[in-house]
Design a protein around this nucleic acid. Structure first.
Lengths: 202, 202
DNA sequence: GCGTTACGCTACGTCTCGTAGCGAAAGCCC
DNA sequence: GGGCTTTCGCTACGAGACGTAGCGTAACGC
């Protein structure tokens, strides 16, 4: 969602239902057609809105798909399973499950690819997907430090670097396993991965 | 390159120079235009061939870019630096350097995205990029095992699984760091990453 | 009711796609 | 050299998506 200018309190308000319908239609189109064959005209028809309405809210296909996919990851939550290993396994498995869905698979990588030449788009992805879910890493770590499973970081900067590294390793490995190797990131794989990661962090 | 039927020994042979020119033109177009704005007509013009010639050799944009990008990774080689940590750091840094190039960035992720709905394309990627470079993991490991830095695997199946896991972790982390986090995978980052990975494997 | 903004609809020029058809060129074999 | 086969360059084409403009209507706040 782009921040509409807060001064605009007059006139007909934008339909929130239309936003939801458009994003849902985008995901449905991603499932059926994939990124490359998805057209904005088709999305508009599915959502029951005019094509012009769609263009008034999003700059293009890229921004629309980022918003549609970002919602998928909001259902992630950190389980409170008592041990760091189980916490990581739980979150990684959830992440893998979401990423296995076709709308996430074909949508996410496509916009990441586009973002290599579009700074604004990359920032949009970072803010609405990555930074939003980094909370899981931070919460899991502080919980583990309270239990004494992880050593405290020497300073704030090092803590941020480590969190970034963990995020890159977790997200990267799951994405590569799922999309490139095209093998399921199932429980057995998650256990092996967690063991390597956890042993490396202590 | 698709395997032309070996029985066709008659007629005018295909120009090998044209193949090279097309792949080079594809990389140049990826640099200047990126994936989404790259058109096959433009590539043909750059390469100095007719558009029809291009369609006679490749099924479409996806296959062409896979071949063009795959060549980039052939320059990877395993340094013989004496220790496993230095070997890994060297390869990861090479990989990161290649991936930082714009033609690799925008091309690779785009075809991976397309491959989520195209089994043949995914297999093409796997064969010409992933499987081709997995040699580095295998060579590095056997060398480290000979030096006693890594324990021998119990059986062949477990060895293959571990190799796959390592590949997913290395490639995934570098890709995520470079493309999503959009931070350089420089020497400092590579050292941190290698430390975590290596400690997790022993 | 009045001003303002969002909406649906239609129409349009532009671009890329992928293919078809043609004559010419470049090899092999006799 | 002549014939056969396949590739090549070129042109042209219909199809489809893009993104925008213009218009009349609908929905809100004051």
């Amino acid at each position: 969602m782009q921040s509409r200018s807060p001064a605009s309190r007059t006139g007909r308000p934008r339909s929130a239902a239309a936003d939801a319908a458009i994003l849902a239609a985008t995901r449905a189109a991603l499932v059926e057609l994939g990124w490359s064959k998805l057209t904005l005209g088709d999305v508009a028809t599915r959502a029951g809105v005019a094509k012009t309405t769609l263009y008034r809210r999003w700059a293009g296909k890229n921004e629309l798909v980022v918003d549609a996919v970002a919602e998928l990851f909001d259902e992630l939550e950190l389980p409170d399973s008592g041990s760091l290993a189980a916490d990581i396994e739980g979150v990684v498995l959830q992440f893998a499950t979401i990423l296995a869905r076709p709308e996430a698979k074909s949508g996410l990588m496509a916009v990441v690819s586009e973002a290599t030449r579009d700074d604004a788009l990359r920032e949009r992805i970072r803010a609405s997907v990555v930074e939003r879910q980094k909370r899981l890493v931070l919460a899991g770590r502080s919980r583990a430090q309270a239990r004494g499973e992880l050593p405290p970081e020497p300073d704030a900067e090092a803590a941020a670097r480590t969190a970034d590294l963990i995020f890159d390793m977790v997200a990267g490995a799951v994405v590569h396993r799922t999309l490139v190797s095209a093998e399921p990131a199932d429980e057995e794989w998650v256990r092996s991965f967690t063991r390597v990661l956890l042993q490396g962090l202590t």
